[in-house]
Design a protein around this nucleic acid. Structure first.
Lengths: 214, 214
DNA sequence: GACAATACCAAGCAAGCGCTTGGTTTGTAA
DNA sequence: TTACAAACCAAGCGCTTGCTTGGTATTGTC
């Protein structure tokens, strides 16, 4: 199936029970949790904060989740699942490696700075609040996501269009793109998402603005 | 004065009371605090943890610092002071803008992954644990530090040797370089600090390996 | 050797934490 | 209407938290 927009992808994942419906009680809680975890940090966010955000008593949370950490893990797992699907779809819509790279960068910037931004920030900055066991589970999902990037970067590297090592470029991009959440404010005018994507591509030595569409 | 190594700079700052002597009680505490804050996060680190790390009772901490947050702020303030001086010295030892950029990148990578790495990580990832007022104070110091980078990047940009915008490149570098702390392990062999610096320079389009020395 | 000032200890307080418990309401289907 | 599970409330338990207090060593100075 070739998905076009993010909403179709989301519906499909909900169907397969891989992510929670944002309209359900569980989904709404995860959404609020992501926002609170990003704004205040996991540790500073109390179960009373979480409960108040969805309008229930703190004890009632534990009917939906066994522990507070399980909430954090759920935010992370569902975020990776959704974004892996979104990125895959973005890359599939373009043919050239350079175009695929641009699509990935744009899609990740959109994830980080758009609707799922809160959850993405949690994924990056609340990593060590997870227990070792949970970290392992999340790590497995992350590997799938990362391989999406690496296969494309290595293709560009081998054809000589990328000056630095593929692994290292991906790691640099991980840091650089996730960091945008701390400073990029598209709503204040100035730089659009496409403009920002162009800047990142330019930094990597791809200077021809909007990438080849085919 | 032209400083050569990091130790001379440190001694000078200690003299001026801008950073604590690592041999003093206060300095040792800040060192341990930085390590704990990085490993467990500020919130998860208790005053009892901090006290145990330096071998005193938890109550005795409050003879040196009024609050736990004051410890966090001190770690950040002293780290910025030291690193601003270190970076300034690194840039001053080279003449060409490209050489200065390489020196800054190398020095920041060294700060992040070397002796002061714990404190640098705290500076990046524990930002929101500071009160608003403290954030303001730290921000002022950060501006000085950032201007060091911007003046050099803008020079490169205006002479056409940098494809992307100077502000954006700096922000990308901030994210990319600080992220290295999560994956770069020089002690396991493989990539040296100079090698990593070369990779970053290559990513930015500066491909001539070790930069001009003059 | 007197005398502060500094550095520390031992004990514990008040508040907030994650989570449990026993019981009530709400939704669903026969 | 009855039956039953899912969703929720009200209360609070046991524990940890940052920080305070009153007192005791240790250190530097003349």
């Amino acid at each position: 199936m070739a998905f076009v927009n993010q909403n179709e992808i989301l519906q499909s994942l909900i169907q397969d029970q891989l992510v929670s419906d944002p309209a359900s009680a569980r989904g709404r809680l995860l959404k609020e949790a992501a926002t609170l975890f990003r704004d205040k940090g996991y540790e500073r966010t109390t179960v009373r904060d979480l409960a108040a955000a969805v309008g229930i008593q703190s004890g009632s949370l534990f009917h939906h989740f066994r522990t507070k950490e399980e909430i954090l893990k759920a935010v992370m797992v569902e975020t990776i699942r959704l974004n892996t699907a979104v990125m895959q779809a973005a890359a599939d819509q373009v043919d050239s490696p350079q175009g695929k790279l641009r699509a990935l960068i744009r899609a990740e910037l959109e994830s980080i700075n758009g609707q799922t931004g809160e959850a993405m920030a949690v994924l990056v900055y609340e990593w060590r609040s997870l227990s070792d066991h949970s970290q392992g589970e999340v790590l497995e999902l992350r590997d799938i996501y990362e391989n999406l990037w690496l296969s494309i970067l290595e293709e560009l590297s081998q054809s000589g269009r990328l000056a630095a090592d593929a692994f290292i470029v991906r790691r640099m991009l991980t840091g650089a793109l996730s960091w945008t959440v701390t400073w990029y404010r598209p709503e204040r005018g100035g730089l659009t998402l496409d403009g920002l994507t162009d800047q990142v591509m330019a930094m990597l030595g791809f200077v021809d603005g909007h990438a080849a569409l085919s």
